Amino acid sequence: MDEIFDYIKKAVLSISNELKFPDTSYNQSQNKTGDTQLKFDVISDEIITNTLSKCPNIKALISEEKDESLILNEEATYIVAYDPLDGSSLMDVNFAIGSIFAIYEKKAQAKCLKAAIYSIYGPRLELVICKDCVNLYRLNKENEFIFVKKLIMQEKGKINATGGTQKNWDEKHAKFIKGLFDDGYRLRYSGAMVSDMHQILCKGGGLFSYPATKNSVNGKLRAFFEVFPFAYITEKAGGKTSNGLNESLLDLEFDNIHATTPCFFGSKYEINALLKAYNER
Protein backbone atom coordinates (compact mmCIF):
# COMPACT_ATOMS: atom_id res chain seq x y z
CA MET A 1 0.00 0.00 0.00
CA ASP A 2 2.79 2.45 0.90
CA GLU A 3 4.30 1.90 -2.54
CA ILE A 4 1.04 3.02 -4.15
CA PHE A 5 1.04 6.09 -1.92
CA ASP A 6 4.52 6.95 -3.20
CA TYR A 7 3.43 6.72 -6.84
CA ILE A 8 0.39 8.90 -6.11
CA LYS A 9 2.69 11.48 -4.51
CA LYS A 10 4.78 11.52 -7.71
CA ALA A 11 1.68 12.04 -9.85
CA VAL A 12 0.40 14.83 -7.60
CA LEU A 13 3.77 16.61 -7.74
CA SER A 14 3.77 16.41 -11.54
CA ILE A 15 0.24 17.82 -11.78
CA SER A 16 1.14 20.61 -9.35
CA ASN A 17 4.15 21.56 -11.49
CA GLU A 18 2.04 21.59 -14.66
CA LEU A 19 -0.55 23.79 -12.93
CA LYS A 20 1.96 26.64 -12.66
CA PHE A 21 1.44 27.44 -16.35
CA PRO A 22 -1.74 25.56 -17.36
CA ASP A 23 -3.75 25.53 -20.57
CA THR A 24 -7.26 26.41 -19.33
CA SER A 25 -9.03 25.97 -22.67
CA TYR A 26 -11.61 23.28 -23.39
CA ASN A 27 -11.50 20.24 -25.64
CA GLN A 28 -14.39 19.40 -27.95
CA SER A 29 -14.80 16.06 -26.18
CA GLN A 30 -16.89 15.05 -23.14
CA ASN A 31 -16.21 12.43 -20.49
CA LYS A 32 -18.48 9.47 -19.75
CA THR A 33 -20.85 11.49 -17.55
CA GLY A 34 -21.26 14.31 -20.06
CA ASP A 35 -18.85 16.92 -18.70
CA THR A 36 -16.97 18.92 -21.32
CA GLN A 37 -13.29 18.21 -20.77
CA LEU A 38 -10.70 20.87 -20.15
CA LYS A 39 -7.40 20.16 -21.86
CA PHE A 40 -5.89 20.02 -18.38
CA ASP A 41 -8.40 17.31 -17.36
CA VAL A 42 -6.86 15.15 -20.07
CA ILE A 43 -3.30 16.15 -19.16
CA SER A 44 -3.88 15.30 -15.49
CA ASP A 45 -5.43 11.98 -16.44
CA GLU A 46 -2.41 11.15 -18.62
CA ILE A 47 0.02 12.07 -15.83
CA ILE A 48 -1.74 9.79 -13.34
CA THR A 49 -2.10 6.94 -15.83
CA ASN A 50 1.54 7.11 -16.89
CA THR A 51 2.82 7.37 -13.32
CA LEU A 52 0.63 4.76 -11.63
CA SER A 53 1.02 2.30 -14.51
CA LYS A 54 4.60 1.77 -13.31
CA CYS A 55 3.45 0.48 -9.92
CA PRO A 56 3.49 -3.36 -9.87
CA ASN A 57 0.91 -3.56 -7.06
CA ILE A 58 -1.90 -1.97 -9.08
CA LYS A 59 -4.26 -4.34 -10.87
CA ALA A 60 -6.29 -1.71 -12.72
CA LEU A 61 -6.95 2.01 -13.01
CA ILE A 62 -10.43 3.50 -13.24
CA SER A 63 -10.59 7.16 -14.24
CA GLU A 64 -13.46 9.61 -14.33
CA GLU A 65 -12.11 10.69 -17.71
CA LYS A 66 -12.06 7.18 -19.28
CA ASP A 67 -15.02 5.08 -20.38
CA GLU A 68 -13.55 1.76 -19.25
CA SER A 69 -11.13 0.36 -16.68
CA LEU A 70 -7.48 0.06 -17.67
CA ILE A 71 -6.12 -3.37 -16.72
CA LEU A 72 -2.43 -3.26 -15.77
CA ASN A 73 -1.60 -6.49 -13.94
CA GLU A 74 -4.17 -9.24 -13.42
CA GLU A 75 -2.02 -10.76 -10.65
CA ALA A 76 -1.88 -7.57 -8.59
CA THR A 77 -4.15 -6.79 -5.65
CA TYR A 78 -5.31 -3.18 -5.82
CA ILE A 79 -7.59 -1.14 -8.07
CA VAL A 80 -7.18 2.64 -8.04
CA ALA A 81 -10.13 4.79 -9.04
CA TYR A 82 -9.48 8.50 -9.39
CA ASP A 83 -10.78 11.91 -10.37
CA PRO A 84 -7.68 13.48 -11.94
CA LEU A 85 -8.75 17.09 -11.45
CA ASP A 86 -11.76 17.75 -9.26
CA GLY A 87 -13.14 21.28 -9.68
CA SER A 88 -11.31 21.87 -12.95
CA SER A 89 -14.07 24.20 -14.20
CA LEU A 90 -12.83 26.68 -11.57
CA MET A 91 -9.32 26.86 -13.03
CA ASP A 92 -10.14 30.03 -14.94
CA VAL A 93 -10.87 31.88 -11.67
CA ASN A 94 -7.84 30.37 -9.88
CA PHE A 95 -9.75 28.58 -7.10
CA ALA A 96 -8.20 25.67 -5.20
CA ILE A 97 -8.81 22.34 -6.94
CA GLY A 98 -7.52 18.81 -6.38
CA SER A 99 -7.17 15.14 -7.27
CA ILE A 100 -9.05 12.28 -5.55
CA PHE A 101 -7.91 8.65 -5.28
CA ALA A 102 -9.70 5.54 -3.97
CA ILE A 103 -7.76 2.31 -3.44
CA TYR A 104 -9.88 -0.84 -3.61
CA GLU A 105 -8.76 -4.40 -2.87
CA LYS A 106 -9.58 -7.01 -5.54
CA LYS A 107 -12.86 -5.38 -6.62
CA ALA A 108 -14.16 -1.83 -7.06
CA GLN A 109 -16.86 -1.79 -4.40
CA ALA A 110 -17.22 0.41 -1.32
CA LYS A 111 -16.81 -2.55 1.04
CA CYS A 112 -13.43 -3.26 -0.62
CA LEU A 113 -12.09 0.26 -0.05
CA LYS A 114 -8.79 0.13 1.83
CA ALA A 115 -7.49 3.70 1.55
CA ALA A 116 -8.41 7.11 0.18
CA ILE A 117 -6.24 10.08 -0.76
CA TYR A 118 -6.80 13.55 -2.05
CA SER A 119 -4.52 16.42 -2.98
CA ILE A 120 -5.40 20.10 -2.91
CA TYR A 121 -3.62 22.53 -5.24
CA GLY A 122 -3.98 25.85 -3.44
CA PRO A 123 -1.55 28.40 -1.99
CA ARG A 124 0.16 25.31 -0.54
CA LEU A 125 0.27 21.80 -1.99
CA GLU A 126 -1.33 19.51 0.58
CA LEU A 127 -2.10 15.81 0.61
CA VAL A 128 -4.50 13.89 2.81
CA ILE A 129 -3.86 10.17 3.18
CA CYS A 130 -6.41 8.00 4.95
CA LYS A 131 -5.85 4.36 5.77
CA ASP A 132 -6.74 3.86 9.42
CA CYS A 133 -6.82 7.56 10.32
CA VAL A 134 -6.87 10.83 8.37
CA ASN A 135 -3.41 12.40 8.07
CA LEU A 136 -2.67 15.80 6.55
CA TYR A 137 0.69 16.35 4.81
CA ARG A 138 2.18 19.51 3.34
CA LEU A 139 4.91 19.92 0.71
CA ASN A 140 8.07 21.59 2.03
CA LYS A 141 10.89 23.39 0.22
CA GLU A 142 12.76 20.11 -0.23
CA ASN A 143 9.81 18.69 -2.24
CA GLU A 144 8.86 16.31 0.57
CA PHE A 145 5.41 15.78 2.03
CA ILE A 146 5.71 16.47 5.77
CA PHE A 147 3.11 15.32 8.30
CA VAL A 148 1.11 18.22 9.74
CA LYS A 149 -1.69 16.74 11.86
CA LYS A 150 -4.51 14.25 12.10
CA LEU A 151 -7.88 15.51 10.90
CA ILE A 152 -10.74 14.81 13.31
CA MET A 153 -14.42 15.70 12.98
CA GLN A 154 -16.11 17.17 16.04
CA GLU A 155 -19.64 16.25 17.09
CA LYS A 156 -21.08 19.41 15.49
CA GLY A 157 -19.81 21.99 13.03
CA LYS A 158 -20.81 25.42 11.71
CA ILE A 159 -20.01 25.16 7.98
CA ASN A 160 -22.69 24.45 5.38
CA ALA A 161 -21.43 23.56 1.89
CA THR A 162 -24.48 22.66 -0.16
CA GLY A 163 -24.49 21.98 -3.90
CA GLY A 164 -27.02 21.75 -6.68
CA THR A 165 -29.08 24.57 -8.16
CA GLN A 166 -31.50 25.69 -5.45
CA LYS A 167 -34.51 25.99 -7.75
CA ASN A 168 -34.13 22.25 -8.44
CA TRP A 169 -34.05 21.18 -4.76
CA ASP A 170 -37.09 19.39 -3.41
CA GLU A 171 -39.04 20.99 -0.56
CA LYS A 172 -37.65 18.65 2.08
CA HIS A 173 -34.02 19.48 1.29
CA ALA A 174 -34.71 23.22 1.03
CA LYS A 175 -36.38 23.19 4.45
CA PHE A 176 -33.48 21.27 6.01
CA ILE A 177 -30.84 23.64 4.61
CA LYS A 178 -32.82 26.69 5.74
CA GLY A 179 -32.94 25.19 9.21
CA LEU A 180 -29.13 24.99 9.31
CA PHE A 181 -28.80 28.63 8.29
CA ASP A 182 -31.41 29.63 10.88
CA ASP A 183 -29.22 27.79 13.43
CA GLY A 184 -26.24 30.00 12.53
CA TYR A 185 -24.38 27.85 10.00
CA ARG A 186 -22.11 29.71 7.55
CA LEU A 187 -22.27 29.12 3.80
CA ARG A 188 -18.93 27.87 2.46
CA TYR A 189 -19.32 26.42 -1.04
CA SER A 190 -16.88 26.85 -3.93
CA GLY A 191 -18.07 24.18 -6.37
CA ALA A 192 -14.92 22.06 -5.96
CA MET A 193 -15.61 19.07 -3.72
CA VAL A 194 -11.97 18.74 -2.69
CA SER A 195 -11.79 22.36 -1.55
CA ASP A 196 -15.11 22.30 0.30
CA MET A 197 -14.48 18.96 2.02
CA HIS A 198 -10.93 20.01 2.94
CA GLN A 199 -12.28 23.07 4.74
CA ILE A 200 -14.83 21.01 6.68
CA LEU A 201 -12.20 18.44 7.67
CA CYS A 202 -9.60 21.05 8.66
CA LYS A 203 -12.14 23.11 10.60
CA GLY A 204 -13.36 19.98 12.38
CA GLY A 205 -16.97 19.76 11.27
CA GLY A 206 -19.92 20.90 9.22
CA LEU A 207 -21.92 19.53 6.32
CA PHE A 208 -21.20 18.99 2.63
CA SER A 209 -24.21 17.97 0.58
CA TYR A 210 -25.12 17.28 -3.01
CA PRO A 211 -28.74 16.11 -3.02
CA ALA A 212 -30.96 14.57 -5.63
CA THR A 213 -32.42 17.39 -7.73
CA LYS A 214 -35.14 17.69 -10.32
CA ASN A 215 -32.57 17.60 -13.12
CA SER A 216 -30.24 15.03 -11.45
CA VAL A 217 -32.49 12.55 -9.67
CA ASN A 218 -29.54 10.26 -8.86
CA GLY A 219 -27.33 13.11 -7.73
CA LYS A 220 -24.37 14.41 -9.68
CA LEU A 221 -21.26 13.22 -7.85
CA ARG A 222 -19.66 9.95 -8.92
CA ALA A 223 -19.61 7.11 -6.43
CA PHE A 224 -16.29 5.41 -7.17
CA PHE A 225 -14.14 8.52 -7.77
CA GLU A 226 -15.62 11.09 -5.38
CA VAL A 227 -18.31 9.81 -3.03
CA PHE A 228 -16.75 6.60 -1.72
CA PRO A 229 -13.25 8.01 -1.05
CA PHE A 230 -14.63 11.04 0.77
CA ALA A 231 -17.12 8.88 2.69
CA TYR A 232 -14.20 6.69 3.81
CA ILE A 233 -12.20 9.75 4.90
CA THR A 234 -15.16 11.39 6.66
CA GLU A 235 -16.04 8.29 8.64
CA LYS A 236 -12.42 7.55 9.57
CA ALA A 237 -12.22 11.15 10.86
CA GLY A 238 -15.17 10.47 13.17
CA GLY A 239 -17.93 11.91 11.00
CA LYS A 240 -20.95 10.34 9.31
CA THR A 241 -22.26 10.01 5.77
CA SER A 242 -25.58 9.20 4.10
CA ASN A 243 -27.45 9.29 0.82
CA GLY A 244 -30.37 10.85 2.69
CA LEU A 245 -31.91 7.50 3.56
CA ASN A 246 -29.16 5.20 4.82
CA GLU A 247 -26.61 5.30 7.66
CA SER A 248 -23.48 5.22 5.48
CA LEU A 249 -22.61 5.91 1.87
CA LEU A 250 -20.19 2.98 2.10
CA ASP A 251 -23.18 0.61 2.24
CA LEU A 252 -24.09 1.47 -1.36
CA GLU A 253 -23.30 -0.87 -4.26
CA PHE A 254 -23.11 -0.08 -7.98
CA ASP A 255 -22.16 -2.04 -11.08
CA ASN A 256 -21.66 0.98 -13.33
CA ILE A 257 -18.26 2.53 -12.61
CA HIS A 258 -19.63 5.97 -13.53
CA ALA A 259 -22.68 5.71 -11.24
CA THR A 260 -23.76 8.79 -9.30
CA THR A 261 -25.61 9.17 -6.01
CA PRO A 262 -27.04 11.85 -3.72
CA CYS A 263 -24.50 12.31 -0.92
CA PHE A 264 -24.07 13.98 2.45
CA PHE A 265 -20.86 14.18 4.51
CA GLY A 266 -20.57 15.78 7.91
CA SER A 267 -20.35 15.74 11.66
CA LYS A 268 -22.63 13.35 13.48
CA TYR A 269 -25.02 16.12 14.51
CA GLU A 270 -25.65 17.32 10.93
CA ILE A 271 -26.13 13.85 9.45
CA ASN A 272 -28.48 12.83 12.26
CA ALA A 273 -30.46 16.04 11.69
CA LEU A 274 -30.51 15.29 7.96
CA LEU A 275 -31.87 11.78 8.46
CA LYS A 276 -34.55 13.10 10.80
CA ALA A 277 -35.57 15.81 8.32
CA TYR A 278 -35.54 13.46 5.32
CA ASN A 279 -37.57 10.76 7.05
CA GLU A 280 -40.26 12.94 8.57
CA ARG A 281 -43.73 12.12 7.29
Results as ranks from 00 to 15, higher is better:
Met1Ala: 12
Ile4Thr: 05
Tyr7Met: 11
Thr24Arg: 11
Thr36His: 10
Phe40Tyr: 08
Val42Leu: 12
Asp45Glu: 15
Ile47Pro: 05
Ile48Arg: 09
Ile48Tyr: 02
Thr51Leu: 06
Lys54Ala: 14
Lys54Trp: 08
Ile58Trp: 06
Ile62Val: 14
Glu64Cys: 03
Asp67Leu: 12
Asp67Ile: 10
Glu68Ala: 11
Ile71Phe: 12
Asn73His: 10
Ala76Asn: 00
Ala81Val: 11
Tyr82Leu: 00
Leu85Phe: 05
Asp86Trp: 00
Ser99Val: 09
Phe101Gln: 03
Ile103Ala: 05
Lys107Thr: 15
Ala108Pro: 10
Ala108Cys: 09
Ala110Cys: 10
Ile117Leu: 12
Gly122Leu: 04
Arg124Asp: 15
Glu126Trp: 07
Lys141Glu: 15
Glu142Cys: 11
Glu155Lys: 13
Gly157Tyr: 03
Asn160Tyr: 05
Trp169Ile: 01
Lys172Leu: 11
Leu180Ala: 01
Asp182Tyr: 04
Asp182Phe: 10
Asp182Thr: 13
Tyr185Ser: 10
Arg186Ser: 13
Ser190Phe: 04
Gly191Ile: 09
Ala192Lys: 00
His198Tyr: 11
Lys203Met: 14
Gly204Asn: 04
Gly205His: 07
Leu207Ala: 08
Ser209Phe: 08
Tyr210Ala: 06
Ala212Glu: 04
Thr213Arg: 07
Thr213Gln: 03
Lys214Gln: 13
Asn215Cys: 09
Ser216Val: 02
Ser216Ile: 08
Leu221Gln: 11
Arg222Gly: 03
Ala223Asp: 03
Phe224Met: 12
Val227Leu: 06
Phe230Asp: 07
Gly238His: 01
Lys240Asp: 05
Ser242Thr: 12
Leu249Asn: 09
Leu250Pro: 07
Asp251Met: 07
Leu252Ala: 01
Phe254Arg: 04
Ile257His: 02
His258Ala: 01
His258Pro: 04
Cys263Gly: 09
Lys276Arg: 12
